[in-house]
Amino acid sequence: MSNPATVIAAGGVVWRERNGTRQVLLVHRPRYDDWSLPKGKLTPHEHVLIGARREIEEETGQQVVLGPSLGVQRYTVRKNGGTADKLVHYWSATADEDAEFEPNSEVDKVAWLSVDEARDRLSYPRDVDILDCLGRVVPVVATLVLLRHAQAVKRKEWESKDTVRPLDTTGTGQAERLTGVLAALGVNKIISSDAERCVATVTPYAASIDRHIHLWPEISERGFGADADAVRGLADKAWKPGKVTVVCSHRPVLPALAREFGLRVGKFSPGAFLVAHRLGDGRLIYERFGAP
């Protein structure tokens, strides 16, 4: 008997550099007596990035920042007396600082090991495959999050100036949930159009980390309509080495911004975003996400 519902999970390869050696963090699960990468199932309606960060912290005690994707595992698990497909998303992850691990019923031991030692210690070949992807996506020089503002009150329902048109109830919820997403990505620089709906989208996160929002009128609909060439030269201000920058703008402006930033971009629904990483070898890698 098979259960058609797919189990969605997320986790990461937590890594650090020590004395010129790259180390990764593995967890031991007493229930299975195995060594694996930290991961776990998402809670209902949880964004996959938030779930990955939460599961890593719960299993290792490390509060991490997520970097580039390391791929997806697909395999079958037992569920409700039958079987179900399991889909596990992995990201590279760096810890802000060392944290003390407290053993629990799910994970009783953790170990920092060199990549070669970890490859030998891991219990599952599929985890080795994910680990082997780490070297292809680090180091990251800079990260850029290109974001469309959350859902706003419809134009036809708003009688005042468009620049002060606010988020609606759905959009306010999206902005609040984006706080966890941007935290998982380690965003530390915030840029926004000066339109109210963009500013309101990033304000909850800015408040949570006590950071200033840099307003760029030229990436508002009004500013872009007045001078479409004004977005030229903004890439150098957005791509900052060592920074994780979010840029919040509008649907008509995003294609031009993407071209300026060196990205390929399609349509964005309200609250959707793209995460791009510039690697040490000059490559750009990125992935798209829907609104949280």
Rank of each mutant, 00 (worst) to 15 (best):
E221K: 10
T201V: 14
P204Q: 00
L182T: 06
T201K: 05
E196H: 12
E218N: 09
H212E: 14
C198K: 11
A207R: 13
G225A: 13
G223E: 09
E196L: 15
K189D: 13
E221V: 15
A207K: 14
C198A: 15
F224D: 14
I209E: 09
W216Q: 07
L185F: 02
V181R: 02
A206V: 06
C198I: 11
V187H: 02
A200G: 02
S193F: 00
V199A: 14
W216H: 11
I209V: 13
S208E: 08
F224V: 13
S208C: 00
R222A: 15
E218F: 00
L215T: 10
A228V: 13
E196A: 15
R197L: 09
Y205M: 13
T179A: 01
N188K: 00
A195G: 10
G223H: 10
D210T: 10
T201I: 07
N188A: 03
V187Q: 07
G225Y: 12
T203R: 13
S220F: 06
S192I: 09
S192C: 05
P204H: 03
I213Q: 05
A184L: 03
G223S: 13
V181H: 01
E221S: 14
G180F: 04
S192W: 09
V187K: 09
K189T: 12
A195F: 11
V199N: 02
L215H: 01
R197K: 05
L215A: 10
R177M: 05
A206C: 08
I219T: 06
D210Y: 00
Y205L: 05
G186Q: 03
L178D: 04
L182I: 07
A184I: 04
S192F: 07
R197W: 12
V199K: 13
G186R: 07
D227C: 04
I213R: 05
I213C: 06
S192M: 02
G223L: 04
A206N: 10
G180N: 00
N188C: 04
